[in-house]
């Protein structure tokens, strides 16, 4: 579904991504793990067009995302839940969700998606009129994910969904991601919590200072000595 080939990204003189290639197949849950500053978020930002690439290609279902205007990428069925949630703090929960469906013209479809999201995240349904900025971290993460689901995307980019959450909430968020995967949504997951990410993923890539150092099935990586020492604290 998504195929990245020899991607290079720089911020000025700093080369953040030095030629990575990766692939996410239909229905797969793939994680991208690695230390802080390895380039995980930059990779997702480049896919979504928020950061321009220097060279390489990013192909989504045959379409070159580098030649697509950033605001049109969501129309191709790719939604991005950014690191740090980025909910619209001064808008209500429901307004945030409606913004998620900004590109959807059919009002009945928006209503249906809204019901679906409230079904997935009952806690949001209890807080429709609350300002998003006053939600807890976990609720904001749910809102950011719910907002991304409003277009019924075929593929999700999830950036550090567990960041700053209590262990209990992390578990809850991960079981939701598993649920979305089970529903058939293709997912590219970026996580610092490598252990939990690998536990729910089909495959994974390890990113090290802008390069992919290892890749393989999540199970293999979970039991790999090098990965265990570097990322799993074992």
């Amino acid at each position: 579904m998504l195929k990245i080939d020899d991607l290079h990204v720089s911020y000025g003189a700093v080369r953040a991504i030095k030629g990575i290639s990766l692939e996410v197949n239909d229905g797969e849950l793939v994680s991208l793990i690695g230390a802080n500053g390895a380039g995980k978020t930059t990779t997702l930002h480049t896919i979504s067009g928020l950061v321009p690439a220097q060279s390489g290609s990013i192909i989504l279902d045959g379409k070159d995302l580098r030649k697509t205007a950033p605001e049109r990428i969501i129309e191709l069925g790719l939604a991005h839940v950014p690191e740090g949630r980025h909910v619209f703090a001064r808008m209500t929960v429901e307004e945030n969700l409606l913004m998620g469906a900004y590109i959807v013209r059919d009002k009945a479809r928006v209503r249906r998606q809204l019901e679906m999201v409230y079904g997935h995240f009952p806690r949001l349904a209890e807080r429709t009129r609350q300002l998003a900025g006053t939600l807890s971290g976990g609720e904001q993460q749910m809102l950011a994910m719910g907002r991304a689901l409003m277009t019924a995307p075929r593929m999700l980019l999830l950036d550090e969904p567990s960041m700053g959450l209590s262990p209990l909430l992390v578990k809850e968020i991960f079981s939701m991601i598993k649920g979305l995967h089970a529903d058939g949504i293709t997912i590219l997951l970026v996580e610092q919590n490598a252990k939990m990410a690998l536990a729910i993923s089909d495959r994974a890539y390890v990113l090290e200072t802008g390069r992919i150092s290892m890749s393989g099935s999540a199970q293999d990586l979970l039991h790999d000595d090098k990965v265990r020492r570097a990322y799993l604290g074992a």
Binding site: L50, E71, I74, E75, H86, V87, A89, A148
Partner: peptide, 12 residues
């Protein structure tokens, strides 16, 4: 409020 989040929503 948030330009990059707005872009991700499909807003020009």
């Amino acid at each position: 409020e948030d330009k990059s989040a707005a872009i991700l929503m499909g807003i020009s």
